[in-house]
Write a protein that binds this DNA or RNA. Structure first.
Length: 109
DNA sequence: CTCATGACTAGCT
DNA sequence: TAGCTAGCCATGA
């Protein structure tokens, strides 16, 4: 029963990703209260059949699609992201919405 | 129980 | 930046 609600929390966390933004698998898991369960998020998405779920906003921690570059799934994902205003470079890597100007700023705010 | 697999990560070279 | 490695966790054979 706990596992089921865990799955629902993960799905909720994915739906909570604002339009035009993205989140890594690990981040989604953490937001769902399941730190370290990135693979569980991936598994849920792979078995998910809900077309309303914004699966395309979920990326790997390095900002790339989880799908092989050039694959149909990957292209579809990048296409949807671009349509939401997300900046994607030529290699299919998603640029963060905001980037700190320096490491100090990143760490210390 | 052990082994293999996967829409993952963090760390090191 | 890119490639490799070990660690991770849930499932199914």
């Amino acid at each position: 029963m706990d596992a089921l609600s865990a799955a629902e929390r993960i799905l909720a966390a994915i739906r909570a990703i604002p339009r035009g933004e993205t989140a890594a698998y690990g981040v989604v898991a953490q937001r769902a209260g399941l730190p370290g369960r990135a693979r569980m998020v991936a598994r849920l998405l792979s078995q998910n059949d809900d077309p309303t779920l914004p699966w395309h906003r979920v990326l790997r921690s390095d900002g790339r699609s989880a799908f092989p570059p050039g694959s149909q799934h990957c292209e579809e994902q990048l296409k949807r992201l671009r349509r939401e205003g997300v900046r994607v470079d030529d290699r299919g890597r998603v640029r963060p919405a905001k980037r700190a100007k320096s490491l100090d700023e990143e760490v210390w705010g």
